[in-house]
Amino acid sequence: MKIALFIPCFIDAVYPRVGISMVQILEKLGHQVEFAEALTCCGQPPYNSGYWPEARKVARRVVAGLAEAEVVVIGSGSCGAMLKVCYGELFAGEPEEAAARALAAKCYEFSDFLVNRLGVVDVGAAFPHRVTFHDGCHGLREMNGKAPPRELLQQVRGLELVEMGEAETCCGFGGTFATKYPAISTAMGEVKCASAAATGADFMVSNDSSCLMHLQGLLDRQGRPLKTLHLAEILACS
């Protein structure tokens, strides 16, 4: 299958390993990966801030740039939900509405794509560590639900998955919310980090790097030994 990767800006600039891992895994499974280099951002930051015309300016290029793709895979539940769920509303009544809905139909979050589109749960990875999974809200509630990332992690050799009490509770990142309301965002993150640390896990894993950027920042500042990793980075380990 020809797979178009959509690499969000923060994966590109801060966490390229996530994108590289996705390429490795998909190619290992025998698929052809394409990267739409002209696309930089899904438009979620201005969209979430209420600046829809500005968001449309960015999103319009994404809709056009991915029009020819067979499937689009996104390594972030949040950006994925933007393409899959929010574009419909963003372009309601606009000329691009039909194209936006067509794009939505072929968009997949990475773990959802592996499990539900490709039918793959074992990618041959090994990661001999204790791991707890943080459900990014948009991956969980707007995209694919709770099961796919866990099904993948359960097949990783040597990996022990321990659930935390607050797995489904928002970490407090929330895009610009994290800087507009830093005190609330930090309190939410503390609740999450405490819950993850209580599992005794070595790694907190998620399918959303934006959550992890916030959480790792808190963990480092608090001097906790817990480390964060994107699901794709684990699946690429052998």
């Binding site: 690499i7 390229p16 994108g19 990267f35 280099e37 930090t186 916030h214 920042g217 500042r221």
Partner: peptide, 16 residues
């Protein structure tokens, strides 16, 4: 309240 991650020395698009 949070550390800021470093920008990666090589971006994904540079890798690509």
């Amino acid at each position: 309240t949070r550390d800021l991650p470093d920008l990666a020395p090589q971006s994904f698009r540079a890798f690509w």
